[in-house]
Amino acid sequence: MVSEETSPQRLHLVFGGELKSLSGVEFRDPAAIEIVGVFPDYASALTAWRGKAQATVDNAAMRYFIVHLHRFLNPDAA
């Protein structure tokens, strides 16, 4: 028998790419945006984000972001 999770699923998306400017969040080539993945919780998304951010530290224009998908899927939830 599979046990039910006690906490609600909170999906997070990690993605990134090279920005046009260090002062903005517009991507140089939107077709080249890298989707790192969708993660079941913030902690695992943060781990993936840190890995990608550290791997691209030599390129100041590379930025990775975490999107709280669960907030888009259920905007009425507190």
Rank of each mutant, 00 (worst) to 15 (best):
E26S: 01
D41T: 10
A48Q: 02
P8E: 07
K20R: 07
R28K: 14
D29R: 10
A45F: 05
E5G: 11
A48K: 06
R28A: 13
G16Y: 01
A60V: 15
F72P: 11
E26Q: 06
L11W: 05
L22A: 07
V36A: 03
L73W: 09
S21T: 04
V57P: 03
R71P: 00
V36L: 02
I35T: 14
R71V: 12
I35C: 08
P40G: 09
Q54N: 13
I33D: 05
I35W: 00
A61M: 14
T56L: 12
D29W: 04
M62T: 09
Y42Q: 10
L46N: 13
D58R: 14
V14C: 04
R71S: 11
M62Q: 06
H70F: 13
D41I: 04
K20A: 05
V67D: 11
V25S: 12
F39C: 02
A31F: 06
M1I: 10
L73I: 11
S21H: 07
Q54I: 15
V38Q: 04
V25C: 08
A55I: 07
E18K: 10
V14S: 00
V38N: 01
Y64C: 08
R10D: 03
E26F: 03
R10Y: 01
M62D: 12
K20N: 02
L22C: 06
V2H: 08
P40I: 15
L11Y: 02
Y42L: 13
G24H: 04
P30G: 04
T6A: 04
P8Q: 09
R63D: 12
A32H: 05
A55C: 10
L73Q: 11
Y64G: 07
E5N: 04
G16E: 06
R71T: 12
D29L: 10
L11Q: 03
Q54A: 15
A43F: 06
A45N: 00
N59K: 14
N59E: 13
P8K: 10
F65L: 09
L22V: 10
T6L: 09
E18D: 02
I66W: 00
D29Q: 12
N74W: 13
H68A: 15
T6M: 08
